Computed example of a mutant assay.
Amino acid sequence: MEKIMFIETGMGIDVHGQNITKAAIRAVKNAIHYNSMPGMRSVLPGNDINNMKVNVKLAVPCDKELLDIEAVKEVLPFGIVTVEVMDGGMVTTSGVVLEEKGDKNDLMYIVVASVEVGY
Rank of each mutant, 00 (worst) to 15 (best):
P61W: 09
L66C: 04
V91R: 13
V28C: 06
N55F: 02
P38L: 13
V75A: 03
I32S: 07
T21Q: 11
D106H: 08
E65I: 04
V56W: 03
S94Y: 01
F6I: 07
P38R: 13
K53F: 03
L67T: 09
D14K: 13
H16A: 06
V81S: 02
I25F: 05
N47S: 10
A71Y: 03
I32G: 05
G46N: 12
T93M: 02
M37D: 03
I20V: 15
T92R: 14
M40Y: 09
N35A: 12
K22D: 09
D103L: 04
M1Y: 08
K57P: 00
I4Q: 06
T82A: 07
V111P: 08
H33R: 15
T92Q: 12
V85N: 02
Y109H: 11
Y34N: 14
E116Y: 15
P61M: 10
E8C: 09
V96M: 07
M86Q: 12
I32Y: 09
A27R: 04
N55Y: 03
A113E: 07
K101T: 00
V43Q: 08
I13Y: 02
V75Y: 01
E84P: 01
V75Q: 12
G118S: 04
T21Y: 13
M86R: 06
N19W: 08
K64M: 14
M52K: 13
Y119W: 14
S42A: 14
M11W: 00
M11P: 00
T93E: 10
Y109W: 13
V28T: 10
E65R: 08
G39T: 11
A31Q: 10
K29A: 08
D103V: 05
S94A: 15
G88K: 07
Y34C: 05
A27H: 07
S36I: 06
V83C: 05
I69V: 15
I4L: 10
M5G: 00
D63N: 15
Y109T: 10
M11V: 15
A23S: 13
L76E: 01
M108R: 15
E70T: 05
A24L: 14
A59M: 09
V97S: 00
D68M: 10
V115D: 05
E99N: 01
G118K: 11
V60R: 05
A31Y: 12
R26V: 01
